Computed example of a mutant assay.
Amino acid sequence: MGESMTVRTNAYLEWLEQDLPCKRINKRFPNGKEVDVRVRETPFGDIQWFIGVYDRDGSILIEQFNGAVSASSLDAALVAAFSKACGFAGVED
């Protein structure tokens, strides 16, 4: 998805406020929907996620930022966030 084509929400802008390394899954499905999932750990040990779900034309279906994810690890948070994003997109992960 071309980020320059989409007017981003406050959720995405919140995600950008901290420039931290993250793990990411970006996948386009046969129905044309795309999910963009990112997770990271803050210097204080908090796990955060960003979930973006976009339609085939790049329009935003949902963008969600969670600054305090309850997960045991980044990998667990990534799996949970991807599953949630797939639910929003109406696809199976």
Rank of each mutant, 00 (worst) to 15 (best):
A81I: 03
S4P: 01
A81V: 08
F44H: 15
I60K: 01
Y54V: 03
R38A: 11
R38H: 05
A80E: 01
V91E: 06
K27L: 12
R40S: 07
G52R: 00
N31L: 08
Q18C: 02
L20I: 13
L16H: 05
P21F: 02
E41H: 00
T42N: 08
R40P: 13
P21K: 05
S73W: 09
A68M: 07
R8P: 01
L74G: 12
G90K: 14
L16T: 05
L16D: 07
S83P: 02
V39S: 07
Q48F: 12
N10R: 07
N66V: 02
R38L: 12
A11D: 12
A11R: 06
C22Q: 01
E41C: 12
G45K: 06
K84W: 01
V53C: 10
P30T: 09
W15A: 08
I51W: 02
A68F: 10
S70P: 00
P43F: 12
Y12D: 01
E92L: 13
I25A: 04
E14K: 14
T6L: 01
T6S: 04
A68P: 01
K23A: 12
E92H: 13
A89G: 10
F82I: 00
S73E: 05
D46K: 14
D75Y: 11
A71I: 07
N10H: 03
A68S: 14
G2Y: 13
F29A: 08
F50K: 01
D46P: 00
I25H: 13
A80Q: 06
D75E: 15
T42P: 10
R8F: 10
D55K: 10
V37L: 05
D19M: 11
K23M: 11
D93A: 13
I25Q: 08
I60W: 02
Q64N: 09
A11F: 10
K23L: 13
M5T: 12
A77T: 08
V91H: 04
L61R: 05
N10Q: 09
A80M: 14
V35R: 10
G2W: 08
N31H: 06
A80I: 01
A68T: 10
R38P: 05
N26V: 06
N31S: 14
D75K: 15
K84I: 03
S73N: 09
A71F: 11
L13C: 04
V91T: 02
Y54E: 03
F88S: 08
V39M: 08
Y54N: 00
D57W: 12
W15Y: 12
Y54W: 07
L13A: 09
V7H: 09
F82T: 07
N66S: 10
W49H: 04
V39L: 01
D19A: 15
A76L: 10
V37M: 02
I60E: 01
I62V: 15
N31V: 11
G32Y: 07
V37P: 09
I25L: 09
R28M: 14
L78I: 08
F50W: 09
D75P: 08
I25D: 07
Y54H: 08
E34P: 06
V35Q: 12
Q18T: 14
R24L: 10
I47F: 05
N10I: 03
Q64I: 11
G90M: 09
F65W: 13
L61W: 05
R38N: 01
A89M: 09
S83N: 15
D36P: 04
N31T: 11
G58W: 05
I60S: 02
W49L: 06
I60M: 01
K27S: 03
